[in-house]
């Protein structure tokens, strides 16, 4: 098959085959201090990506083993698990960032709207599946230019400020940052607070109009207040983009995720609705891991 160099004509699918909304029942067990933010929000979810029998190894050392799961628009998928279990590795494989590691090998297939991601030109894929990292990493330029950089052609500075303004503003608005920075768009982005920086990174990732948004522990470097702002934001975003978030904070996963995948030593141990997985885990290892957070 030929490499896809242009996006398929219809990027936002209509709702052909609505899958049932995620469970919104109250948790079965007691002791859940966290309130579910997402309750009642998504009515439908559409399958956008499909991870199918994916194994990833670094120079022969397995980091992810035979993982299969769906990624849906209209919901938040949380990847949880102890350190080193392969969450980041799996997340990075979704937009082929793993390929930047020379030793990494991937087996199995990952599909975006039924097209294998290896058939999509990487820079195009990475505009459809964008990523936000653990450390806030705004580029050393102004707030405006951080977002404009994403909108401009490769390496070009040609697009004028005026023409980019609406798109930049809308991305900042979607990331819930616009009101705070609208008077300081020319200020250096690295002088924002950590939480603002991370929301700028989300704005950057949204400016590409992605279909899937990957977040790797986006709140781990932030204070509780910024964390809350970003959690609200993520829940709001899931109607337009499929959101996958890696988190070490189980309460956070419970608060914002619709589905949760628990990984352990590279294996996908359990995948299920958030309330089900936290309330009545099927696997012993899940139960042990989850019980630590919800005592």
């Amino acid at each position: 098959m030929e490499l896809l160099r242009t996006p398929p004509p219809i990027r936002r699918l209509p709702l052909p085959d609505p899958e049932p909304a995620t469970e919104v029942m109250a948790p079965a067990g007691a002791g859940f201090s966290a309130a579910r933010r997402s309750i009642g929000a998504p009515q439908f979810s559409i399958r956008r990506m499909e991870v199918d029998g994916v194994s990833i190894s670094y120079g022969g050392k397995r980091a992810v083993r035979d993982v299969s799961l769906p990624i849906r628009q209209g919901e938040v998928l949380a990847l949880i698990g102890p350190s080193g279990c392969g969450k980041t590795t799996l997340l990075r494989s979704l937009n082929r960032l793993t390929e930047l590691t020379a030793t990494a090998r991937l087996e199995g297939s990952i599909r975006l709207d039924d097209v294998d991601v290896t058939l999509i030109e990487p820079t195009l894929l990475r505009r459809r599946v964008t990523m936000v990292f653990q450390q806030p990493n705004p580029f050393p330029m102004s707030v405006f230019d951080n977002v404009a950089y994403v909108l401009r052609e490769q390496g070009s500075r040609r697009a004028r400020r005026r023409t980019l303004e609406p798109a930049v503003h809308s991305a900042l608005q979607r990331a819930g940052l616009f009101d705070e920075v609208k008077d300081n768009l020319r200020h250096p982005a690295l002088k924002l607070s950590g939480g603002q920086q991370q929301r700028l990174c989300i704005a950057r990732a949204l400016a590409a109009e992605p279909e899937v948004l990957l977040l790797d522990e986006p709140c781990s470097a932030l204070d509780p207040q910024s964390t809350q702002v970003i959690e609200d934001l993520i829940v709001k975003l899931r109607d337009d983009v499929a959101v996958v978030i890696v988190t070490h904070n189980l309460q956070q996963a419970y608060r914002i995720a619709d589905h949760v995948a628990f990984m352990y030593l590279g294996d996908l141990v359990e995948y299920g609705g958030a309330t089900a997985l936290f309330g009545s885990p099927r696997e012993q290892r899940t139960r042990e891991y989850v019980s630590g957070a919800f005592g």
């Binding site: 937009n95 960032l97 930047l100 990487p122 820079t123 195009l124 894929l125 990475r126 505009r127 964008t130 990523m131 990292f133 653990q134 450390q135 990493n137 580029f139 050393p140 330029m141 950089y149 994403v150 490769q154 390496g155 500075r157 990174c201 950057r204 990732a205 400016a207 590409a208 990957l214």
Partner: peptide
């Protein structure tokens, strides 16, 4: 940091564009 480069790749920028617009100015 490596993640700064990757943040640029992760919004679909090429290595050349990243070097030209992010790394060298930095």
């Amino acid at each position: 940091p490596r993640h700064v480069r990757e943040a640029s790749y992760a919004v679909g920028k090429t290595k050349a564009a990243t070097t030209r617009r992010i790394l060298l100015p930095a």
